[in-house]
């Protein structure tokens, strides 16, 4: 198989675009898709400071690599969840990559600041680990971006992630989540960082290929808590459809975005809606819809339940 652009030996075929690329043209294609996403969704410009949430996996490290290559001011932020060997290895990948490229890295340690790793915290508040993890990560991503003076917080969510999430939300008719599924969420109120997903035009497989041909050393191992996750099932189903009819995933997610864009005129904007419902958390000052934000509620519960269950009478 030959590269469609330069006829060199192809390393990846991309059925949804009826094309195949060699190493150099694949890198060019991936960078062009990210540039297009940034421009079309008005994410940021080269004068903005961007904080990239990195996990040590292929998506977030590739995103950091691509943004730097394209000339953006992108720094890294890592949350150490304290999940034994997995966290140790993923942190090492992040540290190695950022120090080799001279990229500033901010780290938040759950064990130091919340006093326990994610598994213990979830046990304390008796909630599913991934749900507690989601709350904590969202909270610290936003807070760190705002406090350290970044204009935008970027995450490595790709086309597969977004299509799978959309499928999950639609299967359960969780329409209240649909509005927040766009690639750009505005910094509608004070204390709320703008959130962007510059990889939403790229399939997971294309990003993994980018990481491999560009020699990015990422963690292949999965978070042990992800096993059997619903997301994996949705992704697998979508990939079965994709194999039968290439282009299904992008038709599904991009089609949703196009409809949402068309709907926009009819409804108040997300920023207006946010300004109406969000105000500072009484405890920490971060924006929330309740009196106290979900992070502070969680931590209060962990503290209250924590000692009570461990201290004997």
């Amino acid at each position: 198989m030959r590269c469609r652009k330069c006829k060199a030996k192809a390393v990846l075929d991309i059925p949804r675009h009826h094309t195949a690329f060699c190493k150099a043209c694949l890198t060019e294609f991936v960078c062009a898709q990210v540039e297009r996403a940034i421009a079309e969704e008005r994410m940021f410009t080269t004068t903005d400071r961007v904080l990239v949430a990195v996990s040590g996996g292929k998506d977030s490290l590739s995103l950091l690599d691509i943004l730097r290559k394209l000339g953006y001011q992108a720094d890294a932020f890592y949350v150490d969840l304290g999940i034994g060997e997995y966290s140790r290895q993923s942190k090492e990948k992040v540290e190695r990559y950022t120090s080799a490229h001279g990229i500033p890295l901010h780290v938040h340690e759950l064990k130091e600041d919340e006093g326990a790793g994610i598994n213990d915290l979830a046990d304390l508040v008796r909630r599913p680990t991934c749900s507690v993890c989601g709350t904590l990560k969202r909270y610290h991503f936003n807070r760190t971006a705002v406090e350290k003076g970044y204009h935008v917080l970027a995450t490595g969510h790709n086309l597969d992630d977004e299509a799978a999430r959309l499928l999950g939300n639609i299967l359960h008719w969780q329409t209240e989540y649909l509005e927040k599924q766009g690639p750009t969420l505005p910094d509608s109120v004070e204390g709320f960082a703008k959130k962007v997903k510059p990889l939403y035009r790229l399939a997971e497989r294309e990003i993994a290929a980018y990481a491999i041909v560009n020699g990015i050393d990422y963690i292949v191992e999965e978070c042990p808590n992800a096993q059997g996750a619903k997301m994996l099932l949705y992704k697998d189903i979508l990939n079965r459809l994709e194999s039968e009819s290439p282009g299904t995933k992008q038709a599904f997610y991009w089609g949703f975005l196009a409809r949402q864009e068309a709907d926009k005129q009819a409804r108040p904007s997300m920023a207006e809606h946010d300004r109406a419902v969000l105000h500072p958390c009484a405890t920490c000052g971060q924006p929330t819809t309740g009196e106290i934000c979900s992070y502070c509620k969680l931590m209060a519960r962990a503290k209250k339940d924590g000692p009570a269950t461990t201290v004997s009478p």
Binding site: M1, V11, R205, I207, I212, V213, V220, E222, Q227, L232
Partner: peptide, 28 residues
Amino acid sequence: VRGDDLVTEEELLRDEDRIEIRPVISGG
């Protein structure tokens, strides 16, 4: 992946080759 190189679905693999099949789907 064969050695350091990605190969496409059309690539002919020989009996003496050593390849890695890298999953690209993550659940987090």
